[in-house]
């Protein structure tokens, strides 16, 4: 019994590590680049965005698993997968937009257009779709969604920190702004590619 418990915990840990580092959605799968570049110029905004995406991604992967198992598979409606998942994500984003507008108007102002754009963030839909394709159990799906969100948050916060430092660095004029940000993102991606093979998943 005990060993079974440890094996389950080990598996969950592997799922998290795999989703955060090895299969990082931004830097190795290249999904969700839009907020990655758009909201990363200030650390505070990046942290706020990270929490919003974490919330949406975890709940979206949970809800999409439920919909997949209890609606799509029994009624053989797999062709409705995308539209169902987009519906889930859009509702969640609407909800979190209301929540942020109420609780933190400053964050609402800072996130601006990127908050409703989480709806079309391909990383969120990507997590939901890949999750279902891998055919995991309920807890594994939730954990995978959460891990992917943590990975997104980690990368976004790291990148925002780098960009804050970069704005004080003596960058050549031609490279200021977007070019040096893209070069930095490429280098971070190279670094994260180094994790591949750490976990086979």
């Amino acid at each position: 019994m005990q060993s079974l418990y440890f094996r389950a915990m080990g598996e969950f840990l592997l799922i998290i590590v795999s989703a955060v580092l090895v299969n990082n959605y931004v830097l190795t799968k290249f999904l969700g680049i839009c907020p990655f570049l758009g909201v990363s110029s200030k650390l505070e905004t990046a942290v706020g965005m990270s929490f919003a995406v974490m919330f949406v991604m975890t709940l979206a992967s949970t809800a999409s698993w439920l919909v997949q198992t209890f609606i799509l598979e029994p009624f053989d409606l797999m062709f409705l997968q995308t539209i169902f998942f987009i519906l889930i994500i859009a509702s969640l984003v609407q909800f979190i937009e209301m929540l942020i507008h109420k609780t933190s108007p400053v964050l609402y102002q800072a996130l601006g257009i990127f908050l409703p754009l989480i709806t079309t963030n391909c990383a969120v839909l990507g997590v939901a779709l890949l999750n279902v394709q891998q055919g995991q159990g309920f807890f594994a799906s939730v954990l995978y969604g959460f891990g992917a969100a943590v990975g997104f948050a980690l990368v976004l916060v790291l990148f925002a920190g780098l960009r804050e430092r970069l704005s004080y660095a003596p960058v050549p004029d031609a490279f200021r702004g977007a070019p040096v940000a893209l070069v930095t993102a490429g280098m971070m991606s190279l670094a994260f590619m180094g994790f591949s093979g750490l976990v086979k998943f």
Binding site: I71, L80, L87, S91, F95
Partner: peptide, 26 residues
């Protein structure tokens, strides 16, 4: 079934959102 399930799901989501809108009015 496809129309009913998608429509029903959208209806539930819409109802929940309108409730949330009332609760978190600014």
């Amino acid at each position: 079934i496809a129309v009913a399930s998608l429509g029903g799901f959208a209806l539930i989501a819409g109802l929940l959102l309108s409730l949330a809108q009332k609760k978190f009015r600014v």
